[in-house]
Amino acid sequence: MNILVALAAVAGLFVVGMLGGVLGLGWIFGVIIPSLALLLFVGGMVAKVMGWSKSAVPFRIPTSCGQQKSLNWIPHSRLENPHTPLQAAGRMVLEVLFFRSLLRNTRAELVDGRRLVYRTDHLLWLAGMLMHWSFLVIVIRHFRLMMNPVPGFVSFIEATDGFLEIGLPVVFITTLTFLLGVSILLYRRLTDPQVRYISLIGDYFPLFLLLGIGLSGVWMRHLDKVDIAGIKELMVGLFHFSPVVPDGISPVFYGHLFLVSMLLAYFPFSKLTHMAGVFLSPTRNMANNNRAVRHVNPWDYPVKVHTYEEYEDELREKMVGAGIPVDKPLEKE
C-alpha cells in the first residue's frame, strides 16, 4: 500500500511536470517552481540545522567503538574512540564520506536451530555508497547546464565519468551506478521482511523520486535527445537571475525538472535531513575524553539529594554501635 501510494505520487508529479511543458507553462514550471523549491530547500535546511543547534548538548555521550585512551602503553584507537576534537573530526570524515558504521553491518542467522552466527553484509553499504557518490557526481556534472563558461573541474569530472566512451552521447558511469544503487536500495526495502515492515511512504517516495529523476534524465540524454541548447539557456538564465524561457523544450525536461523541484522542496521536511543531521549526532561528533575534560550542561539545575547529615542523623546510633566514625557524637540521654 505504502509502495503504491509513493509510486503513484511520483508518477503523478512527473505527469504534472510534463503537462506543464505541453501546455506551454514554461514560466511556471521552468522558473517559478524551481526557484521556490530551491528557496524552500535552502531556507528549510538552514532552519532545520538552526533548530537542531538550538537544542542543548547536556552530556558528552559518544559511542566508543575502540580502545579508550588511558595508560600510555595501551594503543589507543583514535578514530573509533576519539580523545580530541580533531580525532572526532576524523571519525566524522570516515562516517560522512565512507559510511564507516554501515561497513560493520552483519546479518544474524540461527544455524542448526540454536547457534547464532553473524555474516558480513556489505550490500547496504555498497548501495548507499553507489547512490550517494554517484548522485554527487551527477549534480556536479549538471553544473555544465547552469554555468557559462563551464568550469574546468566540471569538464574534468565529466570526462572522467565518461571515460568508457560507450555510446553517443557517451554513457556516464555514474548514470549506471546511480540507478543501480537506487535499485538495490529499493529491492532491499521490498524484499527484506523486516525492512519492508518498518517502511513508510516517506521511505519509498524519495527512492521513486530519485529513480524518476534518473530515468527521465536517461530518457532525455539517450532516447529523446532533447534541445540541450534551449535547456542550458533556461538554466543559465535561472542561475543568473535573468530568466528566459526558450520555446521547443521537450515536456520530458519539464517532468524531470519538476521532480527535481519536488525533491528539493521535500528535502527539509523528511528523513532526507539525515544529510545534515549526521554532523550533529552527539554519539559521533564528540570526543570521548569525558574524564579528562569536563563537559558543562547549559541547563543544569540543583536537585534534591539526601545529604550525609540527613543520612547520619537517621543512622547515627547504628553507626556508633558498629564502631563507624560519625561527624556528630550521639546525644547523651
Binding site: A56, P58, L102, V195, D203, T273, H274, S281, P282
Partner: peptide, 20 residues
C-alpha cells in the same frame, strides 16, 4: 534540552541496519 533526542527523531532513514 537534548539535541540527541531531537536529531534522532529527525534523521532515521529506516535502513534497518540496526534491526538484527
Amino acid at each position: 534540552k537534548y539535541r540527541s533526542f531531537k536529531v534522532f527523531m529527525d534523521t532515521c532513514v529506516r535502513c534497518g541496519a540496526c534491526a538484527d
